[in-house]
Nucleic acid binder design. Structure first.
Length: 191
DNA sequence: TCAGTGATTAGG
DNA sequence: CTAATCACTGAG
């Protein structure tokens, strides 16, 4: 199916006219290239759309995210520099960073920010599915999505349905190794 | 509370 | 090459 895009007035989003859901809007580059502390909360209530292998499109409402911010952030994988795994985080925003943790759980991250400033927002859950590993299992996300571009991919993208939700913040989960200061940053965002 | 699981990384 | 670590989950 050929895809065409039309930028809207704000330049933040693109229409997705060939998609069955004509009224929704695909998030475009300018949404993702902002600082992760802006993007991570803005991802709340956005819709992750995935074209499954059988062609059907599944949609998931994002309910929880965490920000991982640059080489100073001791909880960010990129704090030790550029490696084969963290390379994708050094791109400008809009790509996916997907990796396996504990040998069995895929973690889905949205790369944010500008070129060579490694940042990402971890998708920690959907409205009816809590936990980053459960979320990827539900959506069928695996290694093959690493590096995928959300602004142009034909099998995964983000939609804005106009909802601007209230949200709460808290400490990030599972980063005790990063030390008191970085653990205390209120960089977890949830509905 | 704790075992499972294997990719990734630093270091020899 | 080795060994340690890990942005977690589900069973008990």
């Amino acid at each position: 199916m050929p895809l065409r895009y039309l930028t809207n007035g704000a330049g933040m989003t693109t229409r997705f006219p060939t998609d069955p859901s004509m009224s929704r809007i695909r998030l475009a580059r300018e949404f993702f290239t902002r600082d992760v502390l802006m993007v991570a909360p803005d991802l709340l209530a956005k819709v992750l759309a995935v074209r499954e292998p059988d062609g059907a499109i599944s949609r998931f409402i994002i309910s929880e995210t965490e920000a991982y911010r640059g080489t100073d952030d001791k909880a960010c994988h990129a704090c030790r520099g550029r490696t084969s795994r963290t390379d994708i985080m050094f791109h400008d925003g809009g790509r996916l960073y997907v990796y396996l943790v504990y040998g069995m759980h895929w973690m889905l991250n949205v790369v944010t920010g500008s070129l060579n400033d490694p940042q990402a927002a971890l998708i920690r859950g959907f409205e009816n599915c809590y936990g980053p590993g459960r979320a990827t299992k539900l959506a069928g996300i695996d290694r093959s999505f690493n590096g995928e571009d959300l602004t142009s991919s034909e099998r995964i993208w983000l939609e804005d349905d106009g909802v601007v939700p209230d949200y709460k913040t808290g400490e990030r989960i599972g980063i005790d190794y990063a030390g008191e200061y970085w653990k205390a940053r209120p960089w977890r965002f949830f509905l």
